[in-house]
Design a protein around this nucleic acid. Structure first.
Lengths: 325, 325
DNA sequence: ACATCAAGGTGAAACGTTTCACTTTCGCCT
DNA sequence: AGGCGAAAGTGAAACGTTTCACCTTGATGT
């Protein structure tokens, strides 16, 4: 490991001078600077990030903490964050769930964080967030001066979807939930049940977990019943797709037998047979908004501006009854 | 920022003792240890990762360097890497392309790296890799004691695909390339042209860039020609899907008018109309293999074992001629 | 001829840990 | 009673930077 000391020696200057030359700070003569740079190149020198960051208290890096990579879901959010980062001179670090809780350590390796991992306790977030370590959360409604929630406006889309189903005369609706510790799931469910309540509809609830297979399994229960629902709202698209698969296997057809609606507008939802009606949002915009707010806080020290990302119902085949006349 | 010094003072012990207690090393009495832990909790102490890592020369973290997140492609590789990491007590950091070349610094924040970003020059990789910083590359054929390429066996799948097309009597084949700086693209193209050469077929080559739109655009050129090809091989699925879209818009139908083959077996390829014939591999296994090799090198210091990830042709609708009798 | 100043450069402290080498205490064995 | 060793604890150096405060030199203005 070559250090700045080696570079200095090789260039025949002091460590201080070498540091100034390498960072283009201080007042160093052109000739000397060049000598240092050459020495650094020759020795294949790379500064030690730890030593550097220990001294300067900033890393110019933001960290994103997610649960996992699979699921087509994070991808666009990350892409949105990344696009914003590319326009700044910050670095981006994405850190998935890891075994050791030592992950906490990692927190200090970045100037600010974006959290989207329900396994991280609210308490941890509260403990860590501070003026020097602002946190944007995408998966919980937690807020103070240093914690900013950027959430989907789940209610908006769900209301539109309910309206759409109701308008078509559907009255026997069921709801398949996602993971119960998910904020989005909770809000989707609550809104849907609320809307139904306004019309005095009782909506049976089945528990899923946001995976395709859990939608399929919920379908096994639902489709075995004596009386089938005429509409099923799934808390995300993957479960809707699982549900459709189960229907298909039993010779049932959406929307004629049961209208199906999902949530998220994942790419696949447009390509299934039938195409899945769903509730969409721009996840790229979501990630970008989060990143922008965080960077702004870090840079210009503006304060956090809570906001909701709009969602809207996308009417597709799986829920659109043919003209019955 | 509370430091270990504060904790020590608060617990009435020396800094050394506090450190030992917090790390569960050294010989510290039960009572003292508890006192320190309590103090740390009370002060909401989190060790400074930089100071720590500066001293210990290991971070117990591996870094993955990719170009971007979008594309459904990295997702599974990352998932594979992540799964392996979860079984160890390493941490995982994923770092996409960023503006400043300062990213080099980041390199030193991890014990080893997995590189999948053709924007990173071979030279950089060569410069950085060392006994203390092993690198696994997924996108180039670079190799020495500290650099391990884990590559797709592109040739295998491409040969099978060519064979499939040829067997069906197709002779007027075209090739649409991906990004020209991509190793995989080069290998796919070379193999395809090679195979064609063996049968004295001349294959026109059109340049794309791995995106759906570039496949669509290449199609505009190809489909405008007087004589259409009877088969088109696209260097990845997204371009194949773009190509199919263009065909659809012109009322052409695969495979009857033109047989189409992609590469990668992205989830979508199974859901399009018609389903896309493609060449698949387990990207999860790919990522997992890379991670495993890297961790093994880091841990048990086994040396690197070069290997290729197998690929195989998946025959689907877009290239399978109906019985013509 | 002398003070002043800018330009170019340097020594050493500091960042927050870990860890080596050392000290003290005390119970136990012979 | 003396010696020994384990257990519990500590002081200080070290990791590789950055940066503050300072020094030297030579040119400039008066």
């Amino acid at each position: 490991m070559t250090t700045i000391r080696d570079v200095a020696k090789h260039a025949g200057v002091s460590v201080t001078t070498a540091s100034y030359a390498l960072n283009d700070t201080g007042t160093i003569g052109e000739a000397t600077r060049k000598r240092v740079l050459d020495a650094a190149a020759e020795l294949n020198y790379h500064p030690n990030a730890f030593a550097r960051n220990l001294k300067k208290r900033k890393t110019h890096t933001i960290g994103v903490f997610i649960a996992r990579f699979a699921g087509s879901f994070y991808e666009e959010i990350l892409e949105g964050i990344h696009r914003v980062i590319l326009d700044t001179d910050y670095e981006l670090l994405v850190c998935p769930e890891s075994r050791s809780t030592r992950r906490m350590l990692l927190h200090r390796q970045v100037d600010g964080a974006i959290v989207f991992d329900s396994k991280i306790a609210d308490e941890s977030v509260l403990n860590l967030a501070s003026y020097h370590f602002p946190i944007v959360v995408l998966d919980r409604d937690l807020q103070n001066d240093f914690i900013l929630p950027i959430l989907l406006d789940n209610a908006q889309g769900v209301r539109q979807a309910f309206e759409h189903l109701y308008q078509q005369g559907l009255r026997r609706m069921s709801f398949i939930t996602g993971a119960m510790d998910s904020f989005d799931n909770a809000e989707r469910m609550q809104t849907f049940l609320n809307e139904a309540g306004k019309h005095n509809l009782r909506v049976p609830v089945y528990e899923g977990s946001f995976t395709e297979i859990s939608g399929y399994e919920a379908a096994q229960v639902i489709l075995r019943a004596a009386e089938l629902p005429d509409a099923v709202f799934c808390a995300n698209d993957q479960m809707a797709i699982g549900f459709l698969r189960a229907m298909h296997e039993r010779g049932l057809h959406a929307p004629d037998d049961i209208a199906v609606v999902g949530f998220d507008d994942i790419p696949l939802s447009r390509y299934t047979q039938p195409q899945v009606s769903t509730i969409g949002t721009s996840r790229i915009e979501w990630g970008a908004t989060a990143a922008r707010q965080l960077i702004d806080f870090l840079e210009k020290e503006t304060s956090f501006q809570p906001q909701r990302i709009p969602t809207r119902f996308l009417q597709r085949e799986s829920s659109t009854l043919r003209d019955r006349s």
